[in-house]
């Protein structure tokens, strides 16, 4: 392994190379004093370099001796077992759940996009409520982080959806346990509201800062099971002149989100806007932020109008086949599209 791989500053790396230390092997035998003299740094800095180097080289060596091919990582079989029991968050729309294989997957980054007014924010709020369905009702009993970049989060609407969700749960328990005294739903809409952590982000710098900070926040709040970003696009679409910089920052952000999803076993849902793109002589709709961004999510769902119905289409997923399903937005939240005829009008 070479010096170039060490996570140290560029000037120190330069000095090492200039003094003839090219491999980790050569560094490992020197004493800190010797090294300090050789490359003209203070002794404490030299010690630091040695520490980093030995840490890296032990990692390097252990690879060969162990039975595993490489340290870290998992076998496919372990992953399969883990995924079989991994938890899913229902969308409250059975058709949509079916094509998603049961709901929104934890440990994955899911992007949902669509035209204005199609129901992106509604799905976001619904998921923030649904993640809190207790374990005995087949939910996760987790908490939610809602990152609002557009200011479209309406508390009144959350309350409506939360109330409807509790009603549904009590109906469900009534159905299965006739003696509903013991199994009555003890949840209160206010407690659902209490478990949604809301961040209002006003610029792209705040957005990046927040994603950096989430790591710490989730460590302190272990029961957070979903992070919703509504929308990931807004600020990145407004304030940028330098598109290359935008791509780099977005790339870094999505990597961090992916890491969060994996490390803390939570679902990340990013809502995205649409834009028009000129393809083969005609304008077509596509999700915003460009082509390199579209690689950054695990699953991509596009919401669109199909005649008079709202549909969701799986545009990209490593495990699900592309399919589309109808859904509807009711006063009670996201529901199956067939039940929409029974909708109670808000008068």
């Amino acid at each position: 392994m070479e010096i170039g791989m060490l996570p140290i500053s560029a000037s120190k790396r330069g000095k090492l190379l200039a003094a003839g230390y090219t491999t980790l092997h050569s560094i490992a035998r020197t004493s800190p004093t010797h090294l300090a003299r050789d490359i003209e740094v203070s002794e404490s800095e030299a010690l630091e370099i040695l520490n980093v180097a030995t840490r890296t080289s032990t990692l390097d060596r252990s690879c060969g001796s162990n039975t595993n091919i490489i340290d870290g990582g998992q076998t496919a079989w372990d992953m399969f077992n883990e995924e079989r029991f991994s938890s899913l968050i229902t969308t409250s729309c059975v058709d949509l759940d079916n094509i998603l294989g049961g709901g929104i997957n934890c440990k994955e980054v899911t992007e949902i996009g669509g035209v204005p007014g199609i129901g992106k924010t509604q799905i976001g709020i619904q998921l923030a409520v649904n993640v809190q369905i207790p374990l005995e009702y087949g939910g996760l009993g987790g908490k939610a982080i809602y990152i609002d970049t557009e200011g479209s989060f309406m508390v009144e609407r959350v309350l409506q959806i939360a109330e409807a969700c509790i009603e549904d749960m009590s109906e469900y328990s009534h159905h299965f346990h006739k003696d509903n005294q013991a199994y009555g739903v003890k949840m209160h809409p206010n407690s659902i509201l209490e478990n949604i952590f809301y961040f209002r982000v006003c610029s792209y710098t705040e957005q990046i800062a927040l994603v950096n900070y989430l790591d710490k926040f989730v460590t302190e709040h272990k029961d957070v099971k979903i992070i919703i970003i509504d929308s990931v696009t807004f600020h990145f679409r407004q304030d940028f002149d330098d598109m290359a910089l935008r791509t780099r920052l977005l790339g870094e952000m999505s990597l961090k989100l992916m890491k969060l999803a994996r490390n803390f076993c939570l679902a990340v849902v990013m809502l995205n806007q649409v834009t028009t793109k000129h393809i083969e002589g005609s304008f077509q709709l596509t999700l915003a932020l460009g082509d390199s961004w579209s690689h950054s999510c695990t699953n991509r769902i596009i919401l669109y109008w199909n005649g008079n119905e709202r549909h969701a289409y799986i545009d990209k997923s490593p495990s699900l086949k592309s399919a589309s399903a109808p859904y509807s937005v009711t006063s009670r939240g996201i529901r199956n599209s067939t039940s929409s005829s029974k909708r109670i009008k808000m008068v």
Binding site: V158, N190, L193, F197, Y198, T205, A209, L210, N212, Y213
Partner: peptide, 13 residues
Amino acid sequence: ISEVVCPPCQTAL
């Protein structure tokens, strides 16, 4: 820096 800059957290309640 991120911790200082990032907006405050509120619960929906």
